[in-house]
Simulated assay, not measured.
Amino acid sequence: MTEPVRLSKRMSELGLCSRREADEWIEKGWVRVDGVVVSVLGSKVLPHQKVTVERQASAEQAQRVTILLNKPMGYVSGQAEDGYKPAVVLVNEQSRWAEDQTEMRFHPRQLKSLVPAGRLDIDSVGLLVLTQDGRIAKQLIGEDSAVDKEYLVRVQYTRPGKLPESDLKRLNHGLIMDGKPLRPAKVVWQNEDQLRFTLREGKKRQIRRMCDMVGLKVIGLKRVRIGGVKLGELPTGQWRYLRPDEKF
């Protein structure tokens, strides 16, 4: 017999929302199991039971925003740390990109629960996703995420000669980090001092550590794409809304 699971976990598995959102909706009485309202946190359901949400939940979710920011150097992705400001402080009416094509109007309430869906180191720049939508956060940083991320990485070889072809192959597949083999990556030369990395995972400072393993020093790192969404012409320090037609 199949074991029951927490209702919030089941809602996340079904792609209805994040677990945090699920708990909020359960408390508000917006969730039904087999047609019956369930408002007790921690309630469990069987996989065959039908889970539905009230219209208010869908309406609230539709108002949640996802913002694309071109993060400059010197800002941290999440909470403020070591005197450095979080990237979210850059999101305001004045810093919105003039060429943003969405009709959405900015309101300070959009900053509430706006969290980074994936990190970008303090000394890295480029595309950072900030979202209020738990479904997008799960899609980008969930354990089973299949969304790839693309980076331009300026490097300097610290050993005599040039990077051997065998070490370029190791960057693509063959390195071990934190005791585990890294997933296959796609790493190619963009020009004589710049590599293009495409990854499907995001360990802390992964690219810098990968480069260090083969004698490369990272001079600059810029994220230019997450799944189907590109940084494009978005200026440094400015932001825009994710368009309705864009999908990660």
Rank of each mutant, 00 (worst) to 15 (best):
T2G: 05
E3W: 06
P4F: 06
K9L: 15
G15I: 10
C17G: 10
C17A: 12
E21H: 12
E27Y: 01
G35W: 00
V36Q: 13
V40F: 07
V40M: 10
G42A: 04
G42L: 11
P47H: 11
Q49Y: 14
K50P: 04
V51M: 02
A57L: 12
E60F: 10
Q61K: 14
A62C: 00
Q63F: 05
R64P: 01
I67D: 02
I67W: 06
N70H: 15
N70T: 04
P72D: 05
Y75T: 03
G78E: 03
G78P: 01
E81D: 07
G83I: 09
Y84N: 14
V88W: 00
H107V: 15
H107W: 13
R109M: 04
L111D: 09
V115A: 14
A117I: 06
G118D: 08
R119H: 02
L120C: 04
L128N: 01
L128A: 05
V129C: 03
V129S: 02
L130D: 00
D133P: 00
A137C: 12
V147F: 07
E150G: 05
E150M: 08
V153W: 03
R154M: 06
Y157N: 09
Y157K: 04
R159Y: 07
G161M: 11
K162E: 15
L163T: 07
P164A: 10
L171G: 10
M177D: 09
D178K: 15
K186T: 14
V188M: 08
V188R: 13
W189L: 08
T198S: 01
L199C: 13
G202M: 08
G202F: 09
M213G: 06
L216D: 03
G220P: 01
K222L: 12
R223T: 08
V224C: 06
L231C: 06
E233G: 14
P235W: 13
G237P: 01
W239S: 03
P244R: 12
